[in-house]
Structures are given as C-alpha cells and as structure tokens.
Amino acid sequence: MSTTIRTQPPPRLRRLPGHGLTDVALARLFIAPSVLVMAAVVLFPIGFALVTSLRSYTRRQVDGFAGLANYATVLSDPAFWAAMRFTGLFTVTSVALEFVIGLAFALLMNHARRGRGMTRAVILVPWVIPTVVAGQMWAFMFNINPGFINSLLGLDDFNWLGSAGWATVTVIAADVWKTAPFAALLLLAGLQTIPAELYESARMDGAGAWQRFRHVTLPLLRPAIMVALLFRTVDAVRVYDLPQVMTGGAFGTESLSMLVRQFIVITPDPGIGAALSTITFALVLGVGVLFVSQIGRSMVEGGSTR
C-alpha cells in the first residue's frame, strides 16, 4: 500500500487555510474543541456536584456549609444500602453469566465453518435493540398477563415481577440476554488474534481439547477478557434502564442510578442528591480504575508511536 503511494507522482495540492501550521500547532487546534466540550459536559458537572454536596440547603436555597453532613445522611439511609445491595448483586451475577455465555458463544462462532457472517449479524440483534424495548419485552414475557414464560415453564400464575428476589432474577435475565452476545463479539475478536499454529503445536504435544483451552486460549485471551469485563462491569454498576422499565424499582430492584434520579426529582435537598451522585461516581470510577490497573497501560497507550 505505502509503496504504491510513494511511486505515484506528487498529488497536486491547493493551498488550504492553515497551510503553514506546524505539527504541534495543529495538534493543539485539533484537541482544543474536544477538551472544551468535555470540560463543559463532564468536568463542570463533577465540580458542580462536589460543591453542591458540601452545602446545606433549606427549601432548595443554600444556607451554609454542610461539611460532610450530606454524605453522612446518605450513608445512614437504608434506601442507599438497599440500592447498593441490588446494584452489587446485579453486577456480579449478570457479568458472570454474560461472561460464561459470551465465551461459549464466541468459541462456537470461532469454530464455525459456515455462516460466520450470518451469525455475526444475528448476534448484533440483541445489542441493537433499545434497552427500553428489551425491558418492556421481557417484562411482558415474564408478566402474569399474557403469561408467556409461565406457560413455557408450565407454571400457573407465578408472579415473577411482583415478588422479592424473583424480580431481581427477571432484570438479570433481560440483561444477560441483551449483553451476552456483545461479550461474545469482544471475545471472538480476541480469539481471532490467536495464531492457529499454537493450537497445532499444542495438539502435536498431545494436549487435549480442555488442555488447549486452558493453556493456550485462556492466557492469550486475557487482554480481550479484561476489556470485556471492564466494559460490562462499568455498564452494570450504572444500570438504570432495565429495572426502571421492568419493575420501576419495586421489590428490591432499585439501582444506585435510579436512586440518584429519584432524589433529584423528589427530594427538596439538592445537597443530599449531589452527595449521592458523587458517591455513585466514585464507585463507578473505582471499579473502572481497578480494571484499568489490571489491563495495564496498554489501553491508554493505544495508538502510540509503535
């Protein structure tokens, strides 16, 4: 590719504005808009929430410095711990299931001799369906009326969405359905970078299928696994759409994100809402940092000078 370009006659270049820009100046010019926009829609909100969370309010009016009192209020609120419990349970269970099912799908697709393109297209369907649609769909399928899943399982009038514990199961089921294929795509991309010769030589050394999986596939798939787990875990910790649409947060399915939004709309105290959203932000960031430190600098250094 590069050699054919080189041997071509020089392209005729009209003078564009900014012709004389140096690389450094161009870099600044190119980065500035993104930095400005991110400052406006990410940095400003974080700072604003931090400041708000340290103030005390009476009827939505600032009336002084609250120190950490708002945080103490949030941390002693049973609703916060209930949301933590649901969010934690949801995250651990759904990410684990998505990972196992996604890996199984990826291995199947990687070995497929036929219909690879077809399968890859089909596997995008759950990903592309809006989460709200997926939530409504699964809520109706689990609902007593029309009772589709109950009739599939031979249950009579089991109230999935209306009982503590099982309501959580329905939300997790909908999430696993929607995102296991996404995990499969990320893992499949990783599988396809593993050279076939490695499997050949492992086979020659007498390694069975399980040993090849355990000693060739898993170690080499580690970077892709970490990336898939990072994306999925961070997404799961900030879950909002599915429980909001399916159960409205009833029967112990209120997530942290739902609680934050509740507070903003209902509570007359912006300080407490801001403290809650800052805690949520710190939690999500903490989970992210944990993964990124595991992946190492490789992701950040992405398109580096190599």
Binding site: T52, R261, V300
Partner: peptide
C-alpha cells in the same frame, strides 16, 4: 494517535475516565 501532543498519556487517561463516567451523575448539575 499521530501528532506531538504534550501530556498525551494524561489526555488519554482523561478520555478513559470520561468513558467510565456514570450518566446519572450528569443529571443533577
């Protein structure tokens, strides 16, 4: 990816941090 940018690692880390950002934290401000 290509131009000489000062604090490139810091900027890429910022982008990564922003992609971890929970949208609900945008709601109040």
């Amino acid at each position: 990816a290509r131009l000489p940018v000062r604090r490139r690692i810091a900027l890429m880390t910022g982008v990564l941090a922003a992609s971890l950002f929970p949208p609900v934290a945008l709601v109040p401000p």
